[in-house]
């Protein structure tokens, strides 16, 4: 009996490993090796034509002490994230709430709010470049007709980041759908019980819907932060980091170091600082999540 069991185990292990072998190859070639290679490159001077040359911590110290563009990129990226992440969550949450009210034609509204989020980034970038055209764009035409002062949008260093935020908010459909899915799972009985107790719509939203959706909020928060740190296409195509480096985002600066100046070692150091920061931030949020994220079926201490 014992031998038979172990023979099945052996057979299962072999077929299991065979089935996952494509991923094992990918794990070794496209994840494990690159992660360590990029850590190694970050300690080297590497222009891709000559083999990497060990220089210790020089890349890191140059980044942190002598590179104003690095800090510029960090500042711009954090500025954008601080605006977009909360606005994106609040606005898509509100829209999801409105859609959840059983209004007529809900599927049409859902389509309208969702469709922009699957637009190719390059397509929406070019469309918004035209909408935000300072002279003949739609945005200023509308503002102008209400006699509101018209900004220069992408061409004004003070407005370029808010313009990007507005453009990205157009694509909030993904976040909204996750909230909508969460709203479907809130038990009806909770609302009925609250109605018997005389709670109005605002109270019900604040005391039932919001707490029940904290897992979705948490998910969207983490995903949103990571996404906002990786903005690339729009700033590469439309603003090219300008005007006056006001849209020089982290990934654009990394891309330039790697593929325009071929400072692969320096860019790898940027990648690792990015990795470390994202990891710490995610762990930090995870740590606070016990205090504000409510999972159904979990007993509070």
């Amino acid at each position: 009996m014992k031998r038979r069991v172990s023979r099945t185990t052996v057979r299962n292990t072999i077929s299991g490993l065979l089935f996952i072998s494509p991923w094992i190859v990918g794990l070794l070639v496209f994840t494990c090796y690159p992660v360590f290679a990029s850590l190694y490159y970050s300690f080297t001077d590497y222009n891709i034509l000559q083999p990497p040359h060990w220089i210790g911590l020089a890349n890191y110290s140059r980044l942190l002490t002598q590179d104003p563009l690095f800090y510029r990129a960090v500042f711009n990226t954090l500025y954008y994230a601080a605006l977009w992440v909360p606005l994106n969550i609040v606005l898509s949450f509100l829209i999801a709430l409105l859609l959840n009210l059983n209004v007529r034609g809900v599927s049409i509204y859902r389509t309208i709010f969702f469709l922009p989020s699957i637009m190719p980034q390059i397509a929406s970038a070019l469309l918004w470049a035209w909408i935000f055209n300072p002279q003949f764009g739609l945005a200023n035409a509308i503002l102008g007709s209400f006699d509101i002062p018209t900004p220069g949008w992408f061409s004004d260093p003070n407005w370029s980041k808010p313009s990007l935020v507005i453009m990205s908010l157009w694509g909030l459909g993904t976040t909204m759908v996750i909230f909508l899915a969460g709203l479907q799972d809130v038990p009806r009985e909770l609302y009925e019980a609250a109605e018997i107790d005389g709670a109005g719509p605002v109270r019900k939203t604040w005391n039932i819907t919001v707490p029940m959706l904290t897992p979705a909020i948490f998910f969207n928060l983490v995903i949103g932060i990571i996404q906002s740190f990786q903005v690339f296409t729009t700033v590469y195509v439309v603003t090219q980091g300008g005007p006056v480096d006001s849209t020089l985002f982290y990934l654009l600066q990394l891309y330039r170091n790697a593929f325009s100046y071929f400072n692969m070692g320096y860019a790898s150091a940027m990648a690792w600082l990015f990795f470390a920061f994202v990891l710490l931030l995610t762990l930090g949020i995870l740590k606070t999540s016990g205090r504000w994220v409510y999972y159904e079926g979990e007993i509070r201490k």
């Binding site: 794990l27 090796y33 690159p34 992660v35 290679a37 490159y41 990571i226 990795f275 990891l279 995610t282």
Partner: peptide, 23 residues
């Protein structure tokens, strides 16, 4: 190995971008 798979989703792509390009 499944936990390893989940963990790899946490690695942002800028980290592997350059070595994969070199390969």
């Amino acid at each position: 190995l499944f936990i390893v798979l989940l963990a790899t989703m946490m690695i942002p792509y800028p980290v592997t971008l350059i070595p994969v390009f070199v390969i």
